[in-house]
């Protein structure tokens, strides 16, 4: 079997006396689109931050492409949660996209024409080039997400980690973002996405990680979205599991067409 893109081994992370993640282990093969689900405060964002190397695990390790995470810097890109960004920061769309290149620019010199071109192309890819001089706070929810997607693209990373990219965007934007995620996956990259909507989780992702401090389940949506499992994790806070019944296709609707006589005559 080939080396997994992401290998999380017995990871425990804590902010205070209680661990946010406890003994979490799983492997993600290359080229997968993986959803991370779990109730609020279950450690979903912490998991992302640990894989990124922002949070150091108290115990355990994270390997990316078979190497310790802190030796493969720059191959992981990150799209932050909406609420964790300072939208009033004095920075333009172009500056944010260019930030994707920071890992490749040596400290003694400025961003090159090549860096600027790559950043610009990334903006074009998400159709945000015409907004490049806007301050980032002056964009709609979906546009903001697209700018950060562009930054991740400009970084040219093999692994993308996204923290709730679908929160606060309308249905059409959600579709558009999902489309970008799918295309990114098809180009051979690995994606992990924090997601809160169980209703769409099965449709969007190849695999799901269900966490609440500990890893409750990891596998295909069919394996993870078991009502008993979910009600255990969500403690009855979600009561609409019936519609997520594991993998049963909805009853097929058959449209009826009948011959008839000319309704305009009578």
């Amino acid at each position: 079997m080939s080396t997994p893109a992401i290998k999380v081994q017995n990871v425990t992370v804590s902010y205070g006396p209680t661990p946010a993640l406890l003994d979490v282990s799983f492997e993600v093969p290359s080229g997968q689109l993986v959803g991370i689900i779990g109730p609020n405060g279950s450690g979903k964002s912490t998991l992302i931050k640990t894989i990124l190397g922002f949070k150091k695990p108290d115990v355990g390790s994270v390997e990316l492409f078979g190497e310790p995470a802190d030796q493969v810097r720059g191959r992981v890109a990150y799209v932050p949660q909406h609420g964790s960004v300072d939208w009033e920061f004095p920075i333009t769309v172009r500056d944010v996209a260019l930030m994707g290149r920071y890992g490749k620019i040596p400290w003694w010199r400025d961003a090159s024409a090549e860096d600027k071109r790559v950043a610009r192309e990334a903006l074009e890819m998400v159709r945000m080039e015409e907004f490049e001089n806007r301050q980032i706070g002056q964009l709609s929810g979906g546009q903001k997400q697209r700018v950060f997607m562009a930054r991740a693209m400009a970084q040219g990373a093999d692994i993308l980690l996204l923290d709730e990219p679908f929160s606060g965007v309308d249905a059409a934007t959600e579709r558009a973002i999902l489309d970008v995620l799918q295309r990114t996956k098809e180009s051979g990259r690995t994606l992990m996405v924090v997601h809160h909507d169980l209703a769409t989780a099965a449709e969007y992702f190849d695999r799901l990680v269900l966490v609440k401090q500990r890893l409750y389940a990891y596998g295909t949506p069919k394996q993870v979205l078991h009502p008993e499992l979910l009600s255990g994790v969500y403690e009855g806070r979600l009561k609409v599991f019936s519609s997520l019944s594991h993998g049963d296709a909805p009853a097929e609707v058959v449209g009826q067409v009948k011959e008839s006589k000319d309704p305009t005559e009578s």
Binding site: K49, L52, G53, F54, D70, R73, G74, V76, A77, Y78, P80, S84, V85, D86, F89, I91, D95, M99, Y102, G103, I105, W107, R151
Partner: peptide, 19 residues
């Protein structure tokens, strides 16, 4: 260190992922 100060102020999580 303009870029480093900018990115660590704006998005520390990404900064640390870039090393």
């Amino acid at each position: 260190f303009f870029r480093q100060f900018q990115i660590t102020s704006f998005d520390p999580v990404m900064a640390s992922s870039l090393g």
